[in-house]
Design a protein around this nucleic acid. Structure first.
Lengths: 191, 191
DNA sequence: GTCTATACACAGATAGAC
DNA sequence: GTCTATCTGTGTATAGAC
């Protein structure tokens, strides 16, 4: 047994390909070519394409959650500041959200594959709800809109920004959408 | 030559399938099964899957543009009222945008296939820009944000709402996002 | 114009050697 | 654990009859 098996390389290649081409278009052959492994290795570690994608997805979701958590843990920022920073993050519109870009693939109607996606989105929505709730609490926001609606819009501006970027082939679309929301939320603040 | 050939049936079936399963997962066999035509008919009218999808897409785009145009032509509504009505439209979150849901498929990197999608999105973005511009003009909105940013956010709230809905399997997500934006835009109005 | 029968490539998975 | 060789099903397209 090697110290670092091909397993990690395979998962890594799969993660990249899920972002680049999606699930249905990702063939085992592509994964093997990129990871430098043979078919045997893939089917030694995973029962099939689905289980491989599952492992890759769970990896990505953990990374992205940790990324958000880092922002949430920033003691320097107010709740509103965290929302603002989240929206202000630099994003590659033409790449798409690593997880959200898979939402329309038929394979994700399957409960098992959808689980990590659903889990990730619920986490982000939930955390945004908490932040918006804190803004209401400390009178930054008026309490005239359900917190989960605002949270939903925040996430939608990012996901929709990615879609717009891809659709018109303009990477700037996403920052235009999130930027506009930053302004609107600032205006929404009860000064 | 029949008065109503199988061509329309084939395009119609393809349109449905593009929404339901997407482009890559839509096989000629599925199109034929649903349309009741034989393989020969399909390849008689279209040079291949791509040209068929193109025809179906152009059909859909025209329909959806006409749908929006109807709202734009409503003499009863102010520019702001039109934006508000656009956001308030009833949408099936679990179905997804007929065109936007294809944005992440690799086949749409191809210029020919992307054209109708790009065209549709540009149209909607452009029309929203005009409406927002009118709102600035008549002092409904402050002029402190570029009109194309607000327009981008409006479209993103819809597209992102669809993504959220699919991701968490909750059809209400989209109306939560667009609903929140309606409130924010109302607050943004210079009263 | 519409059909059935057929060809070809490749995605997905298995067998078994090393 | 890792590899190569192989098998099967199906997506995509063509040929050619009716």
């Amino acid at each position: 047994m090697q110290r670092r098996s091909k397993k990690a390389a395979i998962i890594n290649a799969a993660s990249q390909l899920l972002v680049e081409v999606g699930y249905e278009s990702m063939s085992p052959a592509m994964v093997l070519a990129r990871s430098g492994a043979g078919k045997g290795s893939l089917y030694h570690f995973f029962s099939g394409k689905k289980q491989l994608a599952l492992a890759a997805l769970q990896n990505m979701a953990e990374e992205m959650k940790a990324d958000l958590q880092e922002l949430l843990d920033d003691e320097q920022l107010t709740a509103f500041g965290k929302i603002d920073q989240y929206l202000a993050r630099k994003r590659d519109g033409m790449a798409g959200c690593r997880i959200g870009r898979l939402a329309n693939e038929g394979a994700f109607l399957d409960g098992e594959l959808r689980a990590p996606m659903q889990d990730y989105f619920r986490f982000v929505l939930q955390q945004m709800q908490v932040l918006v709730g804190q803004c209401v609490e400390d009178d930054t926001f008026a309490a005239d809109t359900p917190v989960e609606h605002i949270a939903s819009l925040i996430v939608a501006s990012v996901q929709g920004g990615y879609v717009n970027s891809k659709a018109v082939a303009d990477g700037e679309q996403i920052s235009m959408a999130t930027g506009a929301l930053r302004v609107l939320l600032k205006t929404y603040c009860v000064k």
